[in-house]
Nucleic acid binder design. Structure first.
Lengths: 267, 267
DNA sequence: GACTGCAATTGATCAATGACAACTATTTTT
DNA sequence: AAAAATAGTTGTCATTGATCAATTGCAGTC
């Protein structure tokens, strides 16, 4: 709704699934013109050691590069895809951040995940060929689009890529299991502590500060993700601040006592 | 502890990771002697259309069969592997059922999943090469052991197998996301209803009754899985019985009003 | 700068579920 | 078969976090 009216032109949404022409999958060499991001490729991407290319050699990365489409950036609120859309691609976050969510029978949304640079989005659709969630940019963001049929074909040629993708999916399963235990046994405070520590570690992974960062999601998003109400999220932030473990100024977070924050999870 | 003292001989545990000799991976033809299950192979397994072999052709199934090890059955309480064990294999449930669980810092366990025939266990270890959970038989059960290195090698030769395994892992991710939303927004009654319906559907999938089945896990296991105490699980079962939606007699469940049970999730 | 709408905070109250405890039933061991 | 251990039920009370409501803060727009 407002998502589409806020743009002059519409992004990669369900309304025009085939609107973005794929690269011809021919066998020309490394440098391929990319309309929105000339000169950007996996080979020179500073995320390449946390993203898909890990454990690939130079020539393999070049081949991977061939099938990746780098589209124009997405604005805050734009969707990569929506629940029930046909699955065609997985996506790597190049910059910015995203949330995935489902709409329940009653119409209210539940957030299933947040995604940061170097992370892969959309793997839930591989088995069913349908996206089970919607995924939306939380800020101005850019992604690499990877047509899955081509990724499968290439994985078949490159054992390293096959292994890498198995590993990425496995890590996603582990992450989901950790959230399972979080949701089934942690208190509100433990959930928030765990959430902040997770964000911190992921920011650190992409060379950003582990102590100071911006929450690009709302309190409500966080609550939907952690199984809490937005009021509880707000209250716990206030309480953590009163204890001087963190400093919360709107969306800005500063972790003052990393060790004590971890100690909350300790027992 | 009691797990090991209860057996005269010890199963596939961390204590003897290499105790079960793998099949030689040579290229001999279909029928391969299997010490504990002569004559059993994927080709004649009645689960073959819900397990790994889906979408493989005859000759591909024979090749898959080559790398699968079918060990002696496990007794109730025996482990397939334990948390922190080195990852080497994934496992398919042939009969019986299993639970996976983690032990928290405080020593109490949290159940991360239940597994029924035709389902694949152990994929959490692929990325990290370490099992993040322990997996235990809930009853007398048997499994197919699939050395992952060989599975990867074979997947590289058989595109259908590669696709199939991507799909299985994706389905696992979807399942985990559904539990995420269950834990973050459902009431105790909705969780139990959803749990019973899930079991029912999975029993139906392997040709068993969708209306009558046995719970092989304890109330405590169910509670740990659903983020409830065992007392709450017990109370909700009693309440569902009072409403005549189900009949609960110890571990025996009979679903009397499938539609009404689904309606609990409806709003 | 005032207006509008969304996001966040804080307070008061309530309800669902947890914790503890007593008791019963079932299974396992001897 | 008896004894012991484990599993399950039910009751009471306590607590966490949800709900409802009022207020403040902030960002974008006219």
């Amino acid at each position: 709704m407002s998502n589409q009216s806020m743009n002059g032109f519409i992004g990669i949404t369900s309304k025009q699934p085939a609107s973005v022409p794929l690269a011809s999958s021919g066998t020309k060499s490394a440098s391929r013109p990319c309309p929105h991001n000339p000169g950007i490729s996996c080979s020179n991407c500073r995320l390449s050691d946390l993203c898909l290319p890990i454990s690939l050699n130079k020539s393999e990365i070049v081949q991977l590069d061939e099938i990746i489409e780098r589209n124009r950036p997405l604005r805050k609120g734009e969707h990569i895809y929506r629940q029930r859309d046909e699955f065609r691609c997985v996506f790597a976050v190049r910059s910015g951040s995203f949330k995935s969510y489902v709409l329940g029978a009653d119409g209210q949304s539940r957030v299933t995940g947040f995604f940061m640079p170097g992370e892969i989005i959309g793997m839930d659709g591989i088995g069913s060929r349908i996206h089970g969630v919607s995924t939306m940019a939380l800020e101005h963001s850019s992604i690499c689009e990877i047509p899955f049929a081509q990724l499968e074909r290439l994985s078949h040629q490159l054992p390293n890529l096959q292994s890498r993708f198995f590993a990425i999916m496995s890590n996603e399963i582990v992450k989901d299991q950790q959230i399972h235990t979080l949701l089934s046994s942690y208190t509100a405070e433990q959930r928030l502590a765990s959430f902040l520590l997770s964000l911190s570690a992921r920011y650190a992974r992409c060379q950003l500060s582990a102590e100071r960062f911006i929450l690009h999601m709302t309190r409500s998003d966080i609550g939907e993700y952690l199984g809490l109400t937005l009021e509880t999220v707000s209250r716990v932030f206030s309480s953590l601040q009163k204890k001087e473990l963190v400093l919360v100024k709107n969306r800005e977070i500063e972790i003052k006592e990393m060790a004590k924050l971890k100690a909350i999870l300790g027992e």
